Amino acid sequence: MKTREAELTRASAPDVSSPEGVLALAEQYVAAARELVTSKKELSIAAPKAGKWDAFCNADGLIDLTAAAKAFTKVTGGTGRTKFMERLRQGDIRFLQVQNPRIPYEVHIKKGRAEVKFVPAGFKMVEQTFLTTKGMDWLADKLGMGDALPAA
């Protein structure tokens, strides 16, 4: 009973045999076209940002420092993980702590730029720093990379 009531109250297609019906159909078409244009604009803005770091992310959406070093090859000249970590300790960036060189400063964790996780290393668990995509964007700005796409 309720289903039938809903079917009857649902707006039916305009009757195109009258000028008013043609006008109503045209208005529906224009509204749908405007919605499509708006959606395409939003997607075109978001698309480059969404996939910028995808090639470097692990299953959790995080980027380890080895992958980050690879992503910034254009700026760092192809340095490996160790040299990249040294660069992250320098005064203009100050991402990794000097006293605990594998861990970022707390401010970067709180701002969502990095996460520290325990990972297996041989027979023990060690702390490892991972960058988030937000952290990669921040680091790209710090390294003067701007909106340039990362090395794939």
Rank of each mutant, 00 (worst) to 15 (best):
Ala148Lys: 13
Phe95Met: 02
Gly135Cys: 03
Pro48Val: 00
Phe72Tyr: 12
Ala69Ile: 02
Leu149Tyr: 13
Phe118Lys: 15
Thr133Glu: 12
Cys57Pro: 08
Gly77Gln: 06
Ala11Trp: 05
Arg94Cys: 09
Leu23Glu: 11
Arg4Tyr: 12
Lys111Asp: 14
Ala32Lys: 12
Lys124Trp: 03
Ala114Lys: 06
Ile103Leu: 09
Pro19Cys: 01
Ala71Asn: 11
Trp53Ala: 00
Ala71Ser: 10
Thr66Tyr: 04
Lys110Cys: 03
Asp92His: 12
Lys111Glu: 14
Tyr105Gly: 08
Trp138His: 02
Ala24Ser: 06
Gly61Met: 06
Arg94Ile: 08
Thr133Pro: 07
Ala68Phe: 10
Ala46Tyr: 12
Val98Ser: 06
Thr9Lys: 15
Ser12His: 13
Lys111Ile: 04
Asp60His: 11
Thr129Asp: 00
Phe118Glu: 13
Arg4Asn: 04
Val37Met: 06
Val98Cys: 01
Ala148Val: 09
Gly112Ala: 11
Ser17Ala: 01
Phe56Gly: 10
Pro101Ala: 05
Tyr105His: 08
Leu88Thr: 10
Ala50Gln: 08
Lys124Gln: 11
Phe130Ala: 10
Ala55Phe: 01
Thr73His: 14
Lys142Val: 07
Lys2His: 00
Pro120Val: 09
Phe130Arg: 08
Ala47Glu: 09
Ala11Asp: 04
Asp92Leu: 09
Gln128Asp: 01
Pro19Thr: 02
Gly61Ile: 00
Val126Tyr: 07
Asp141Gly: 07
Ser17Asp: 06
Tyr105Leu: 04
Ala140Leu: 07
Tyr29Gly: 00
Glu7Trp: 15
Glu27Leu: 12
Glu7Phe: 14
Met125Ala: 10
Arg87Asp: 00
Thr79Tyr: 14
Lys70Pro: 02
Glu20Tyr: 10
Ala121Met: 13
Leu65Pro: 06
Thr73Lys: 15
Arg89Met: 06
Gly51Tyr: 07
Ala67Thr: 03
Ala140Asp: 10
Lys41His: 14
Val75Ala: 08
Ile93Gln: 01
Thr79Gln: 12
Phe84Trp: 03
Gly144Cys: 10
Ala68Lys: 09
Ala67Ser: 15
Asp147Gln: 14
Arg34Ala: 05
Val22Cys: 09
Lys134Asp: 10
Val75His: 04
Glu42Pro: 00
Ala55Arg: 11
Phe95Pro: 02
Glu35Lys: 14
Leu131Trp: 00
Phe123Thr: 15
Leu65Thr: 06
Gly112Arg: 12
Val98Phe: 03
Lys111Phe: 04
Asp147Asn: 15
Ala6Tyr: 12
Gly112Ile: 10
Thr82Phe: 04
Lys41Met: 10
Gly77Tyr: 12
Gly77Leu: 09
Ala151Asp: 09
Leu131Gln: 01
Thr82His: 11
Thr129Cys: 08
Gly122Met: 11
Phe56Trp: 00
Trp53Cys: 00
Ala67Asn: 14
Arg87Met: 14
Ala148Tyr: 04
Ile63Tyr: 03
Ala26Trp: 09
Ile45Leu: 10
Lys70Gly: 13
Leu65Trp: 00
Glu42Cys: 06
Leu96Asp: 05
Asp54Pro: 01
Asn58His: 05
Ala68Ser: 14
Ala121His: 15
Phe95Cys: 01
Gly61Ala: 07
Ala67Tyr: 03
Val116Tyr: 03
Pro104Val: 11
Leu139Ala: 06
Ser12Arg: 11
Asn100Leu: 06
Arg94Leu: 08
Ala59Asp: 08
Glu27Val: 13
Lys117Ser: 13
Leu139Met: 02
Ala121Ser: 15
Ala13Asp: 05
Gly61Pro: 01
Glu20Asp: 12
Gly91Phe: 08
Met85Tyr: 01
